[in-house]
Amino acid sequence: MTLLQDRAATARSAPGRPSYWTMRRRDHLTGYLFITPALVGAVAFVFLPLVLVVWYSLHEWNVLADTFDFVGSENYRKLAEDPNVPGVLRATALFSIGLVVLNLGLALVLAVLLNQKLRGTTFFRVLFFSPVVVSLLAWTIVWGFLLQDNGGVNGLLSLFGIDGPNWLRSGGTAMVSVVVVQVFKNVGLNMVLFLAALQGVPQELYEAARTDGAGRWTVFRRITLPLISPTILLTSIITVVGSLQVFAQISVLTQGGPGTSTTVLVYYLYQQAFQFHAFGYGSTLSVLLFLIVLALTVLQWQMRKRWVFHES
């Protein structure tokens, strides 16, 4: 409706001037000028590179020998035959699923806890949110230090008589560690968004449900969850897309190991392009990453129609 109002406003003020530069024309010009930087940015730093990525993926580029040769679909054939790719995709999927489930789950729990009528919730809110503002690298390095075999986490566990595993060096726990470190880093953000959504649920609805005799859990499932579902959708999209971009954590904590158990797609792309100097094949992996992000986003928008309660 804002659109209509706006159009009406423009129409009404338009006949104000007889010259060529009518209000409307000037508005058009202003509009174009206002979006020019963003548009130039999108073309120069999003579209052009995307086209180039596809173009490079058809080439072999050797930096040391300074050659750039057209090889057609060679890199895509390599992608299909690359024995590392299934493992890389599995690691990527594990990381993303683990991160989204744990992050959203914990964020929701924290938000519900902080939404109780308790003293000192502000204090806890600040604590849970604080890692969001800590530099990602500082956070990751500290956890890398804590998760050493003789580090702080195992020290803490030994206080309770638990002999902790070698977190970052054993196949099963390395991925868990990377996911959990990332969850604690960013869960505060989703927590705050959930908290705002929870506070937006009208109290009358809760009271009505209580008078109907519904239990806590039923109220949460039937009223709270549906009402905050738009926020859940939005945070899950942001978290999923963000999870596909994880690089620093892998690079600092595990370097993709042990084996290739934590080699996610972006890390593999970096290895191929910048460590093995296979820029052409690296570009092919970029194309794959783009297709995955595209597919996931489309899928999530489809799910919105079915699951999300309302859109205002």
């Binding site: 054993s170 196949g171 190991g257 042990p258 084996g259 290739t260 290895q271 460590q275 093995f276 100097h277």
Partner: peptide, 19 residues
């Protein structure tokens, strides 16, 4: 030649040894 990639491949493949 191509030692970065080979080294990385050996390293990953050797990891199961270290238990």
């Amino acid at each position: 030649t191509g030692s970065a990639e080979i080294s990385q491949a050996v390293r990953s493949a050797l990891d199961p040894m270290w238990k």
